[in-house]
Computed example of a mutant assay.
Amino acid sequence: MANFSRSELKYAYYTWNKSEGECTNVEGFPDHPLNRIEGYEVLSFINRFMATHNYSLTSTFERIEEAIIARVPLDRRSHKTVKEWLETRYLSECI
């Protein structure tokens, strides 16, 4: 299972208002909004996504983070729709 930490995130603009435990308790990819600027929420999402797909490389982690921040359209708001976009539009081409 992927278990990257805060230090692996390359973008510096994250807020850290939620607790890590609050974000790691999310199961699966729910239909509620993914806060793309909340560091622990993004970190938890990436770790879950990588575990789901058996990814483990740091370079993959970095590509997923970059995609969430810079490529996933803003109308993809929920964990579920971000996951679906990553699976169909981006990662199949890059990983």
Score class of each variant (00 low, 15 high):
1 M>L: 10
1 M>I: 13
2 A>E: 11
4 F>D: 02
4 F>K: 03
4 F>C: 11
8 E>C: 14
8 E>M: 15
8 E>H: 09
9 L>M: 13
11 Y>W: 04
11 Y>V: 05
11 Y>P: 02
11 Y>G: 11
12 A>Y: 11
12 A>F: 14
13 Y>E: 14
14 Y>E: 05
15 T>S: 13
15 T>C: 05
17 N>A: 07
18 K>F: 10
18 K>I: 01
18 K>M: 05
19 S>C: 08
19 S>E: 15
20 E>I: 10
20 E>G: 02
24 T>Q: 03
24 T>D: 09
24 T>R: 11
25 N>I: 09
25 N>W: 05
25 N>C: 07
25 N>P: 00
26 V>S: 07
27 E>K: 14
27 E>P: 00
28 G>M: 05
29 F>T: 02
30 P>S: 09
30 P>K: 12
30 P>C: 12
30 P>V: 15
31 D>S: 15
31 D>H: 09
32 H>R: 13
32 H>L: 15
33 P>F: 04
34 L>M: 04
35 N>G: 04
35 N>A: 12
38 E>K: 11
39 G>E: 10
39 G>S: 04
40 Y>F: 06
40 Y>Q: 13
41 E>C: 06
43 L>N: 01
43 L>D: 08
45 F>H: 05
45 F>Y: 05
45 F>L: 14
46 I>D: 10
46 I>A: 03
47 N>H: 12
48 R>P: 00
49 F>L: 09
49 F>E: 01
50 M>V: 07
50 M>N: 10
53 H>Q: 04
54 N>W: 03
54 N>Q: 11
55 Y>A: 13
56 S>D: 14
57 L>Q: 11
57 L>F: 10
58 T>A: 14
60 T>N: 02
61 F>S: 02
61 F>W: 06
62 E>S: 10
63 R>D: 15
63 R>Q: 14
64 I>E: 03
66 E>F: 09
66 E>C: 05
66 E>A: 02
67 A>R: 06
68 I>R: 02
69 I>H: 03
70 A>R: 12
70 A>I: 03
70 A>F: 10
71 R>D: 14
71 R>I: 08
72 V>R: 01
73 P>W: 03
73 P>R: 00
74 L>Y: 09
75 D>A: 01
75 D>L: 04
76 R>G: 00
77 R>D: 10
79 H>K: 04
81 T>N: 13
82 V>E: 03
82 V>F: 00
83 K>C: 08
83 K>T: 10
84 E>R: 11
85 W>K: 05
86 L>G: 05
88 T>Q: 13
88 T>R: 10
92 S>N: 15
92 S>A: 06
94 C>F: 13
95 I>D: 12
95 I>R: 03
